[in-house]
């Protein structure tokens, strides 16, 4: 017996889907198509003349060792940001979930950093770690560690990862906490009566039941790390030192808006589109299988 409700005819369903399709076409397909078209040309900045170069822009990019290195940088950066922001958020959420007294205050304080704009967060962290005047850098100096993210690529990467993850922890915390509270207490209590310790209960019951939330956050955080961390990188390192923190989307900006090289910038957008498309397919095809709804 088929219980699914179906529409008769195709006019009504088409009309209902149309607004969504129109929005997608205008705001996604049209600009994406433009990017693909522009990536075939080298225009001058003012748009006075333009030369067709075919795949020339892509060849120019892929022959550039720094551009190829930026794929690795992006992978490292995105993985670290996702891992740090989700890991810390989950840990905090588990702790907050166990709180009985003043949990409201605790939660509110944890959610605050989300209200800080990425660029502002970048500046805040930059001040704290500023080589000569930063408070944290100064304390590290007292401990005998010479902090200098201006010249040291690994320190620069660590700093942009911390600054990008910081505000994101709040966002993830909210979702994890809600997820944790949706888990039926009875299941956990039953396990407790059977003698399972806290961590045993966490890994065998809580974590699997939390997997829809975790999966959603994984997708959202990877997209965040790819596209929205731009402000942090711009304010803290501008992609340096020696392009150690130049992620793909930052290079799109730098080449398009600082260098006025719109052909290369468009080609990079197309490459980025393909990369993120592949990533999403992988996520939904392979990781989602492990999710219990």
């Amino acid at each position: 017996m088929d219980k699914r409700v179906t529409f008769r005819g195709w006019l009504l369903p088409a009309a209902l889907v149309l607004p969504q399709l129109a929005v997608t076409a205008v705001f996604f397909f049209y600009p994406a198509g433009q990017a693909v078209w522009q990536s075939l040309f080298i225009p001058d900045p003012f748009g006075l003349k333009s030369q067709f170069v075919g795949t020339g822009n892509f060849e120019f990019l892929l022959n550039d060792p720094f551009y190829r290195a930026s794929f690795v940088t992006t992978a490292v950066f995105s993985s670290l940001v996702t891992l740090v922001s989700m890991g810390v958020a989950l840990w905090l959420a588990v702790l907050a979930d166990r709180l009985i007294k003043s949990s409201g205050t605790y939660r509110t304080l944890l959610i605050w950093p989300y209200a800080v704009a990425p660029a502002v967060a970048g500046v805040l962290w930059l001040f704290m770690f500023s080589t000569r005047v930063g408070l944290v850098a100064w304390y590290l100096g007292l401990l005998g560690y010479e902090w200098n993210h201006v010249l040291n690529g690994e320190e620069a990467m660590a700093l942009v990862v911390i600054a990008s993850s910081w505000g994101r922890i709040s966002y993830n915390f909210l979702f994890f906490l809600a997820g944790l509270q949706a888990i039926p207490r009875s299941v956990i209590e039953a396990a407790a009566i059977d003698g399972a310790r806290f961590w045993k209960r966490f890994w065998t019951i809580v974590f699997p039941l939390l997997s829809p939330t975790t999966f959603f956050l994984l997708v959202v955080n990877v997209v965040y790390a790819f596209f929205e961390t731009f402000g942090v990188i711009h304010t803290i390192t501008s992609g340096g030192p020696q392009q150690a923190t130049t992620i793909l989307v930052y290079k799109v900006y730098a080449d398009g808006f600082v260098g006025q090289d719109q052909g290369s910038s468009a080609a990079q957008s197309v490459i980025l589109l393909v990369v993120v498309g592949l990533l999403t397919i992988i996520q939904f095809k392979y990781i989602e299988r492990k999710v219990h709804y």
């Binding site: 010249l151 040291n152 992609g239 030192p241 600082v258 260098g259």
Partner: peptide, 21 residues
């Protein structure tokens, strides 16, 4: 031309010298 970006390249390479790389 493209000098804003070329300066960025010079900055990067000079940083490599200052860092001793």
């Amino acid at each position: 031309g493209n000098f804003d970006q070329i300066r960025g390249i010079i900055d990067e390479e000079l940083e490599a010298v200052w860092a001793g790389d």
